[in-house]
């Protein structure tokens, strides 16, 4: 191969590598650039730093609004992700078990919450929830975020199931176990990493969602991204950088556990 490489091809290769490496830099650099600024002693979000200080973290952790926004984000995210994981796992299993009429349409339909512009959904909820007094409630936001999380659970659990060996189910049934017992003791342990991965995905969707919070969240449901939205819009301060850094750490933790689970579930698939 290497003998056939011409000058132009080499030049193209160099261009390709330069763009790709530039692309990696473009993806990661701005996210990493904000981290040191949160430790800056100065008032402004600019380099060079004027000494290292934790004052903005102090600001963050001793502020009632930021703390309650973290609490709200966690409440909404955990409950919404749990609902999404439960419904999404059931649905993915059903889609995998048998071919029934309209299955293609149904799976496309179930992924729609991922695609429909969020403003349309949020404005729709704003009108829809009002007569039921669900605007400005946790219940309303949890329901909305649960809907938004379900496609991600359906996708990840479907991917996990696609590597699942169906003979294990037949083996379980032929040995006299009830279908529920088979689901609990054979299927679920094997797909659990995929299910948890889907749940983490749904949680992170809720954790970053801000548009439905803007439309149907009240002053008591201000989440972390909602506070950041006001902060960026009104006065971008180093406290925002501290909040961003905390969210980046959270994202890294989610990413690492998701990657761990994904590899675990693909290893199981290889065995099955």
């Amino acid at each position: 191969m290497s003998g056939a490489i011409t000058g132009t091809e080499k030049a193209w290769r160099v261009v390709l590598y330069v763009v790709a490496i530039g692309g990696f830099f473009f993806l990661v650099a701005p996210i990493l650039a904000i981290v040191p600024l949160s430790f800056n002693d100065g008032q402004f979000l600019t380099y060079p730093l004027r000494g290292v200080s934790l004052r903005w973290y102090e600001d963050f952790f001793f502020s009632g609004t930021w703390m309650s926004s973290i609490r709200n984000s966690l409440i909404i995210g955990v409950v919404a992700a749990t609902i999404a994981t439960f419904l999404g796992t059931l649905a993915a299993t059903g889609l995998w078990l048998a071919d029934f009429p309209g299955k293609r349409f149904i799976s496309a339909f179930l992924l729609a919450p991922m695609i429909v512009p969020m403003v349309i959904y949020a404005v729709g909820l704003y009108f829809y929830f009002a007569p039921f007094d669900l605007t400005a409630t946790f219940t309303g936001l949890i329901l909305a975020h649960a809907v938004l999380g379900t496609p991600f659970v359906v996708i990840t659990v479907t991917a996990t199931l696609s590597g699942f060996d169906r003979t294990l189910i037949r083996a379980g049934l032929s040995l006299g176990a009830s279908p529920i017992r088979v689901a609990r003791s054979v299927v679920f342990p094997l797909i659990a990493p995929g299910v948890i991965f889907g749940g983490l995905f749904a949680f992170s969707v809720s954790l970053e969602e801000v548009i439905t919070v803007l439309f149907i969240g009240g002053p008591n449901q201000r989440t972390l991204p909602r506070e950041m939205f006001s902060g960026i819009r009104e006065n971008i301060s180093p406290t925002i950088a501290a909040a961003a850094t905390i969210m980046i750490v959270l994202a890294v933790l989610l990413l690492l556990s998701a990657e761990f689970l994904r590899r675990r579930s693909s290893r199981l698939q290889a065995k099955g």
């Binding site: 996210i31 991204p225 961003a244 980046i248 990413l255």
Partner: peptide, 28 residues
């Protein structure tokens, strides 16, 4: 791939804040 997935998992608001900081008048 982690370099691709890190921004993917980082909340939108964080990435937007990062760009405001990086692109501002005295930004990086």
């Amino acid at each position: 791939m982690i370099l691709v997935l890190l921004p993917f998992w980082t909340p939108l608001l964080v990435r937007t804040a990062a760009w405001v900081v990086v692109l501002q008048e005295h930004g990086l």
